[in-house]
Design a protein around this nucleic acid. Structure first.
Length: 612
RNA sequence: GGUCCAGUAGCUCAGGGGAUAGAGCAACAGCCUUCUAAGCUGUCGGUCGAAGGUUCGAAUCCUUCCUGGAUCACCA
């Protein structure tokens, strides 16, 4: 790699020229900015202290040394403390033909290491998915692909939250007001039907609290004393003692939800290797708690509840098991972590969970540690920011959530409307058009969400909706379709491509002959060089995205590449070029740009159409 | 109150020690007899929350403060 070579050569130069030993980290190496002439830049400011000369003088001497030793450098320019290197055309042609055209460009070889377990989605079964869940699912799915591209053996797991008081609320509401309604009889998608009863419960519960407060109770007393919540708690107890009627209804309602989730997952294009259910793991969690109690690392209070004391860790005391023996959220997470660790012996267990649960995972990790479980060290909480609406956070209780299914419907409709208006599908068969609307709609939604740094909160304004112009999924998809169209025309004109259309098979028939390049050492135009520089960065962007667990890095990179390509496309003729010897290179540049766009978008879980 | 995260153009977001701080949207002005105009070009728009500090160099690192958010549940 040129970066490594250059850095090492700089170290050598400093030794030879100034008799000083420096480490490779001392040298700054970066892609030269767009508006400055050059391909790569060496930052020489830090060298001033070793050479006792002005940065400019050092840059000149260093440039001379590098140009002398590295034949891939054609020339160099010095601006202030920057040494800007211009690579030879041969360097770039070699890069295109050898590295960039490989199918593995941007993928690391498989690491010989234990797997990474990646948990995402993790829905509750009492209500349908909303926009926040969409962010979670898209992030998780994209991360799995990015980690795989970085050579990791990834296991995608989903932990379904199918037990707990919230589920019992839906159950109870259904028992009370359901009248035997089913998804079939009502025509309502299963998860939405269950959600309807959850909302119904909350509504009546709220009313009851209000009434109790009117009769003199404090809010807290009312919230705990209301008949509805007591009934729900009673159902939770019956559930934990396996009351057959409760279990039967619970199974039925959950199956409705799963049926609904499966449809939403399919539309989103996410999948899992393994699905865990809390109803299966919470018992193991309880066991861990009892085990910890025996070993004396946990303690029992007078009422029989079991607690962990984390005050010496800077946290507080935390309840792990209620006095009545029922488990809380963290109880099952202890069991899940242990079970998962036993099953995979992973090097890392990544949990894609919102930043509202930072404290929870801090506690989880520390409790596992206290229990002496090695799983503790593998737990990593990838906390992502909330999706906010203009009026603030989404709140299920206040009905301000943006429903996932509605959102996807809306994106499809907008895609269809826009595409038809532009007359893009006039010659498409109806079925193919439908696929395209889905591709574009989901592309817009996914890109919109993934382009922002996962750890930051993001704003979604339903009124302004999601754009299809500018820094958007459809813009990138469009650029890809444009490239494919160009390549189809090239094929018609007799230029030979590989089956994938991504690279050129017989490069000698397409590329300018090396001998013809030597005298024309500047035939690469600025936009072409810029694209080459960007393409060159792709592998490091993928590895950085893997290291930082950030799909946003890839999204923003692809946008830059697509934008740059559009400029090239608009300004520079390809098939219309009169100097035939240049056509091959431009086609190759286009083909590889198209491939990198496609591969990069794949890492985001977004597909790109060949025509749109 | 403790802890954590964020504050960059009117709005949504990049940039996380290096060159004159970038995109998109919005607004305005251009570009389709020519490879897809979901595109391209240009104009307008900034005390990078504030003040100190470290450094040859700070939007970026450190300290303090201000503002917003999350969390500190026998909810999940």
């Amino acid at each position: 790699m040129i970066e490594k070579t250059t850095r090492e050569c700089c170290v050598e130069a400093v030794r030879v020229l100034y008799g000083q030993e420096i480490s490779v980290e001392t040298i700054g190496f970066e892609k030269t900015k767009r508006e400055i002439e050059g391909d790569f830049s060496v930052v020489v400011f830090p060298l001033a202290q070793y050479a006792r000369k002005s940065p400019e003088a050092i840059a000149m001497e260093l440039g001379g040394y590098l140009a002398d030793k590295l034949p891939v450098i054609r020339e160099f320019h010095v601006i202030k403390g920057f040494l800007n290197l211009v690579m030879t055309e041969k360097f770039w042609l070699d890069f295109l033909e050898k590295e960039a055209s490989s199918e593995d460009f941007g993928r690391s070889p498989r690491r010989d290491a234990s797997p990474v377990v990646l948990e995402y989605s993790s829905p509750n079964t009492n209500k349908p998915l909303h926009l926040g869940h969409i962010r979670n699912n898209l992030l998780g799915h994209s991360l799995s692909l990015i980690l795989e591209a970085n050579g990791y053996d990834v296991r995608k797991v989903n932990l379904v939250n199918d037990r707990g008081i919230h589920i019992c609320k839906s159950l109870f509401a259904y028992m009370k007001w359901g009248q035997g309604e089913t998804p079939k009889t009502s025509g309502i998608k299963g998860d939405h039907l269950v959600g309807k009863y959850y909302v119904l419960f909350e509504k009546h519960y709220k009313e009851e609290i209000r009434e109790l407060m009117a009769s003199g109770m404090t809010e807290e007393e009312a919230a705990q004393g209301a008949d509805l919540i007591r009934e729900a708690q009673e159902i939770l107890r019956q559930w934990e003692t396996s009351d057959p009627d409760i279990i039967r209804l619970w199974r039925t309602m959950n199956s409705w939800t799963y049926e609904g989730f499966t449809r939403s997952y399919e539309r989103l294009g996410v999948e899992f290797d393994r699905i865990y259910y809390e109803s299966d793991t919470y018992l193991q969690g309880k066991e861990l708690v009892y085990e910890g109690l025996e070993r004396g690392v946990l303690k029992k209070k007078a009422d029989g509840s079991i607690w962990v004391d984390l005050q010496d860790e800077g946290l507080d005391e935390k309840l792990l098991l209620r006095a009545d023996g029922t488990s809380v959220y963290i109880t099952q997470d202890l069991g899940t972590a242990e079970q998962r660790y036993e099953e995979y012996h992973p090097s890392k267990m990544i949990y894609v969970v919102g930043n509202e649960q930072i404290y929870h995972f801090d506690v989880l990790k520390k409790v596992m540690k206290k229990l002496g479980k090695p799983a503790a060290d593998t737990i990593y909480h990838l906390s992502y920011g909330m999706v906010e609406l203009p009026e603030g956070r989404m709140k299920s209780r206040e009905g301000t959530v943006v429903d996932a299914d509605d959102m996807m419907d809306e994106m499809y409709r907008t895609a269809e409307e826009t595409t038809r208006e532009l007359g893009k599908v006039d010659d498409f068969p109806e079925e193919e058009a439908g696929i395209l609307f889905h591709t574009i709609g989901m592309g817009a939604l996914k890109y919109f969400i993934l382009k922002v740094d996962p750890k930051k909160n993001m704003l979604f304004d339903p009124k302004e909706s999601i754009d299809f112009n500018g820094n958007t999924g459809p813009f990138i998809q469009y650029t890809h379709a444009r490239i494919k169209s160009l390549l189809r025309k090239a094929a018609d004109a007799g230029y030979v491509m590989r089956d994938t259309g991504s690279t050129i098979r017989d490069s000698s028939s397409l590329l300018p002959r090396p001998s013809s390049l030597v005298p024309h050492n500047s035939f690469l135009l600025p936009p072409e060089r810029e694209i080459l520089k960007l393409l060159y960065q792709y592998p490091s962007v993928v590895s950085q995205a893997g290291a930082e667990l950030s799909p946003a890095l890839i999204a923003n990179y692809i946008y830059d590449l697509a934008r740059e390509y559009n400029q090239f496309y608009q300004e520079i003729p390809v098939l219309r070029e009169e100097r035939k010897e240049l056509i091959g290179l431009r086609l190759m540049l286009s083909a590889i740009t198209g491939k990198v766009i496609r591969k990069g978008m794949e890492l985001l879980g977004i597909s790109v159409p060949d025509r749109m």
